[in-house]
Design a protein around this nucleic acid. Structure first.
Lengths: 234, 234
DNA sequence: GCTTACCAGCTTCCATGCAAGTTGCAACGG
DNA sequence: CCGTTGCAACTTGCATGGAAGCTGGTAAGC
């Protein structure tokens, strides 16, 4: 891993800065639950672990706080945020609204791009279908994530992309945890294809509605799971 | 609640930190165009002006960059971001989606809160109507802003509120500039009332659609204004 | 036994120093 | 006269130290 590219806004080409490294490393650690939610780390400790001084860690923590992944407690350390069912409800409200909008935008693209976008979305969905047959849940999850990311990215709205990225980072752990509990994998494939068809036909309203309904159904499946399993925070 | 505090995430009560001061001051300066877009300031200079050292200014700049208000150029200073018509298109996509969702959520509230919310929204709209009669454009703009902020806040979704806050900060200057150019003030009042009525009747779908259509029409009015006036960046 | 006050240790906040990178201009060579 | 090179000034990146604040445990007092 010579280059931990990225994680920045998006356009600045490349600049290997310690702050960026710290940001990427901490974000990854949170994603993988190396930093468990509720864990309270000191900047000193993280700095030591990453082999840098406290300053870049501190600045990365500010960014992560802005992303809603951690909270910097005034003089007590960095608290890894937990996600409660209530948070997931909030997150889904945002996803439902923005992904519907994204689907509508993609359906409104000029024909060439629109069909190319539809093909990419179809590819992800096909991967989901075969992963389901193989019983490969992680692959299914990755392809599902790919579909939704592609849908938003094809909309070509940088702010939309950024917001969805942030909200996805927040809910990533919950999605991973509940992946194995979900029973309605084929419904997702069917619904994805409905969205794709609407996009192909430039049916903006339909694409919006189908994408929206897909996410609403997913939420209605997921929220009870979280609450029944007593996952107060994860 | 008379609370001018703020600018922080939301829940931490109060802590007068220099970073917060710097963040608030810079944000305000950008809002008021004391820092004009395109202006490139050095952290040193801002630190001097605010009577603090570079560190808190630097950290505040990171937050502002996360908010999309400035760009921190690697070793050249802080650049105040300009807003192009293309940015406004992006911003409106987000607003259209999220405010529609917010209206739907408000319409889904239990009756007591729902009616209280509707009353508050109606108050703002009434203020707009009378400001229009008086020809008081700034008051009209403030009441309009109040309506939309209240709509989002009543939805009770912290993430929604935060995102809309950020996006509003980005577009504030553009709204101020174009306020005097807009001719369709009464349409806004009518459309607001349509949303309010739907909320009163717990008509979630209607509230969503009307709020959405209101913002779509506003966008279709605003974008040509920006482009015809050759406002490449503002 | 229970409450309260205090203190030691830990943590961040912020100022500042040094080094590295960028810019613009001036001087030099063609 | 024009293009190029080098230098000087200025900028931030990052490290580090001192100061202030918070926490938890302990000991004193009731």
């Amino acid at each position: 891993m010579a280059r931990a590219k990225s994680a920045r806004t998006d356009d600045s080409e490349k600049r290997p800065s310690l702050v960026d490294d710290a940001y990427a490393a901490m974000k990854l650690a949170i994603r993988n639950s190396d930093f468990a939610p509720g864990y309270q780390a000191s900047e000193q400790e993280i700095a030591l672990r990453l082999g840098m001084s406290r300053t870049p860690v501190h600045e990365a923590a500010i960014r992560l706080q802005e992303d809603g992944l951690v909270r910097v407690l005034p003089r007590r350390g960095i608290l890894i945020c937990a996600i409660a069912p209530e948070d997931m409800r909030e997150i889904y409200d945002v996803i439902i609204a923005l992904e519907g909008q994204a689907a509508e935008l993609v359906a409104g693209l000029p024909e060439t791009e629109r069909l190319r976008a539809a093909d990419e979305l179809a590819a992800h969905t096909d991967t989901m279908a075969s992963a389901q047959i193989d019983g490969d849940l992680p692959a299914w999850g990755a392809a599902d994530e790919g579909f939704h990311r592609a849908l938003v990215e094809q909309a070509g709205n940088g702010r939309l992309i950024r917001i969805m990225q942030t909200i996805n980072d927040q809910s990533h752990r919950a999605r991973m945890l509940t992946l194995r509990l979900r029973q309605e994998l084929d419904a997702s494939v069917t619904e994805h294809r409905r969205v794709i068809d609407a996009i192909r036909e430039a049916d903006a309203a339909g694409a919006h509605r189908y994408a929206r309904e897909h996410r609403i159904r997913a939420r209605n499946n997921l929220l009870p799971l979280l609450e029944n399993f007593g996952l107060r925070h994860l």
